[in-house]
Amino acid sequence: MQTVKMVITGPFSSGKTEFIRAISEIDVVTTDREISSVAEREEKEQTTVAMDFGRITVDDDLVLYLFGTPGQRRFDFMWEILAEGMLGFIVMVDSAKPETFREAKSILETFRAYAPTPYVVAANKQDHPDAWQPDDMRIALRIEPEVKLLPCVAKERDSVRDVLLELLYTILEEME
């Protein structure tokens, strides 16, 4: 049986776990822990410590694994391990938190340096009233025109599916 892997990365609380949860056929195996620091707790209760893990079965001999990286920098020793052998990756960005854009770009560059695999950027939380428009985020994050920057709402399965599909199309194009 063949397995392929895609990695979902991005800053703290950008929606990586939510993204995998929306589309995985198994309950996402997350190694989320309760958050310790006060500042982070205001944001949400759980953060991913080691990784998230989701699965989509294609048929008897092909399975797609989705790995979510921990968002907090202090766990970044996990990133390179997770990046090993990935087919492509998605950088999740919280569109309503412009203070995280710089960090998102830095994570993107780090992953790009691990492997020359295709990737897309997901402008997540587009349902949020403070969300920046994807076009503005492209300029602010300095994403080249040939890289896809896609609007996303990780809470909605259709939206997650579209982002995954776009990444797969990109992978296919690069093979041609």
Partner: peptide
């Protein structure tokens, strides 16, 4: 493999 993945994800 990629084409099969695409077909599968489309069906979701």
């Amino acid at each position: 493999v990629v084409t099969r993945l695409i077909d599968r994800i489309k069906s979701i």
